[in-house]
């Protein structure tokens, strides 16, 4: 029982990170119907941006307070990652809008290769161990020598995710940007006729997705304590799985899917086989797409002739 509780805590933490990345996939798919294959690598890039600024603030500038340092790192990582996403959309995807459907996907795959290799070349191929942050734990219960613990990082991850999701929900539901976004999602041409700046809305969608991925990147770095140039692909595919499982295009679905994938992955590792945990996630991806293509909360797609 204690073991299960511990795994659930770990799973929810991991799921929060996946959920944050998944929103980027689901929003972009919702608005332009494209799988942004490079999103996982944008996330990876953000972990490196966060790592570099953290080192810069704590080592070079000697900032004493960790909380302030983390806050500045968060803001800078969000800004710079957003800039990258904006540039990628502008240079690699926008010229291909209206081209045949596979063109943006292939461009995105090229971008993904470019980003991961850029980080490999500029930062080196080795794992980067991050100094431990917020490693202290709270012991929730202790019985028969097994204790259930909750670390400060886990609390931080879940709280930050929750707050951001609320802010994000507010943007999408209540602001004019959110309205423009939902209008573009429903009918891009009609939205343009009614005076919505479609290009700007799509750019902002990429920017918001990247900003959330940057938050996920910082949390990922704190949680695992190590970053690598290769960390974009597998978390990216898992987050995409989360988006698909929750119903692609649906924002609550992305969060729900993220939590489910996090839980499944942790429980699978704990009770079955840790070697095959990625096989489990990839199988869920395949099974969902084949048997439940609209996901748990998505709208079924109507095929028009």
């Amino acid at each position: 029982m204690e073991y299960l509780l511990q795994q659930i805590i770990n799973g929810v933490t991991l799921g929060s990170i996946y959920g944050l990345i998944a929103i980027g996939y689901t929003m972009v798919f919702g608005i332009i119907g494209m799988v942004n294959f490079a999103h996982g690598d944008v996330f990876m890039l953000s972990t490196f941006i966060a790592l570099i600024f953290l080192l810069l603030l704590t080592q070079v500038l000697g900032l004493g307070s960790l909380a302030i340092a983390l806050f500045i790192v968060l803001i800078l990582a969000m800004l710079l990652t957003s800039l990258w996403a904006w540039a990628i959309e502008r240079l690699a995807y926008r010229p291909l809008r209206g081209s045949f459907r596979l063109a943006p996907l292939i461009s995105a795959i090229g971008m993904s290769i470019f980003l991961s290799n850029l980080v490999q070349v500029t930062q080196g191929p080795r794992n980067k161990p991050v100094p431990s942050i917020l490693g202290e734990v709270i012991t929730l219960s202790e019985r028969e020598g097994y204790s259930v613990t909750l670390s400060y990082r886990q609390i931080l991850i879940v709280v930050v995710t929750g707050v951001l999701l609320l802010a994000f929900w507010y943007i999408v539901q209540k602001t004019s940007l959110g309205r423009a976004q939902r209008a573009c999602e429903q009918d891009r041409r009609m939205a343009a006729l009614l005076g919505v700046d479609v290009d700007r809305t799509i750019s902002l969608t990429f920017v918001i997705g990247a900003a959330l991925a940057a938050v996920a990147g910082l949390l990922f770095m704190i949680y695992y304590g190590v970053v690598n140039f290769n960390d974009g692909f597998v978390p990216g595919v898992k987050a995409f799985t989360a988006a698909v499982l929750g119903g692609i295009g649906s924002l609550p679905g992305a969060v729900l899917g993220g939590l489910l994938i996090g839980l499944i992955e942790t429980l699978w590792s704990a009770y079955f086989s840790i070697d095959y945990k990625d096989v489990a996630t990839f199988s869920i991806l395949a099974v969902t797409l084949v048997f439940l293509p609209s996901g748990l909360l998505g709208k079924p797609e109507v095929e028009k002739v």
Partner: peptide, 21 residues
């Protein structure tokens, strides 16, 4: 040699943008 995949990815994007077909 370590730049080969970097250039490969870049070439993929550039060819797509220049000649999507």
């Amino acid at each position: 040699a370590q730049y080969r995949m970097l250039l490969f990815g870049l070439a993929m994007v550039l060819v797509m943008v220049w000649k999507p077909r």
